[in-house]
Design a protein around this nucleic acid. Structure first.
Lengths: 141, 141
DNA sequence: TAATATTTAATTGAATGCAATTTAATATTA
DNA sequence: TAATATTAAATTGCATTCAATTAAATATTA
């Protein structure tokens, strides 16, 4: 490979990763539109469907997002009536996010999404596991 | 796997992909800061280092970006003196982007980036190829 | 040719995403 | 305790990203 070749898009690992991520998120859109969530709102709700209550810092650790992204996102979810935001009594710095009944109810709609997405993606279960493990390794260190 | 498990982040393929894409782009930042480019500006410049001249539509096809992203991006690259923007004489709808001498000169700095990035990523060449192929397959259809 | 359709960028608007700073609360230390 | 340091969110500012619309130019069709 020449020096020049190294600066070509096709020879970068990052670029296909970047395209794939955007593309897969785009494929979620028709399904997410039906429950009026963006992708980022959806992954935040996924955490809340599992945990019901979490503070902003822990949510950020889980989603790899900071308060600059999460604060407006959570305010928007609150406006939709899906979560409550309340300062902790013990430590006023901490903002505790709790899922509402309406938020919980939304889960019934959302459970259909993963299998619908799976059928959009042309990977065998083995390939999917393989990809998953390679991405995990990529993220190491 | 229970129905509930399917709605957990760890069991989604999309989420690690999304995190990995952001993370790898973040790792580019220290290198890109040195040549005063954002990641998106960098991939646009990569195309121009290879082709010297391209119109917005073709650039968008190559980068999987539309004019909503590219128009401000290219204006910014023009402000930096790295490209020129000029309407085609034959078809005034088409905007032709051409790399400047300053833009070409920047390539000398940029050639070091891919190998520096490679050393940031803990994948063997075989694993990288494997990942590349799986991502390509994921994007099919 | 005149009317219509298509194409290409630009624009608009909403939602990220992140670095950097600020604010307020709590913890630590002198 | 008083001063300082740390922590958690919020805010600010800049750069995407994309859907939808607009505007202008070109192509096609009646």
């Amino acid at each position: 490979m020449t020096i020049d070749d190294r600066l070509k898009l096709e020879n970068q690992l990052c670029f296909p990763l970047y395209v794939a991520s955007k593309e897969v998120i785009k494929r979620y859109r028709p399904f997410l539109d039906k429950i009026d969530l963006t992708y980022t709102q959806y992954i935040a709700m996924m955490v809340l469907w599992e945990k019901e209550t979490i503070n902003v810092k822990d949510l950020g650790k889980r989603l790899f997002l900071d308060s600059g992204t999460l604060t407006p996102l959570l305010k928007s979810l609150e406006t939709k009536g899906l979560v409550n935001r309340k300062r902790s009594k013990e430590d006023e710095r901490i903002l505790v996010v709790t899922i509402t009944e309406k938020g919980k109810a939304l889960k019934e709609e959302a459970v259909k999404i993963p299998e619908k997405m799976a059928s959009c993606i042309k990977l065998s279960p083995e390939e999917a596991v393989n990809l998953y493990n390679l991405i995990k390794k990529l993220l190491e260190e």
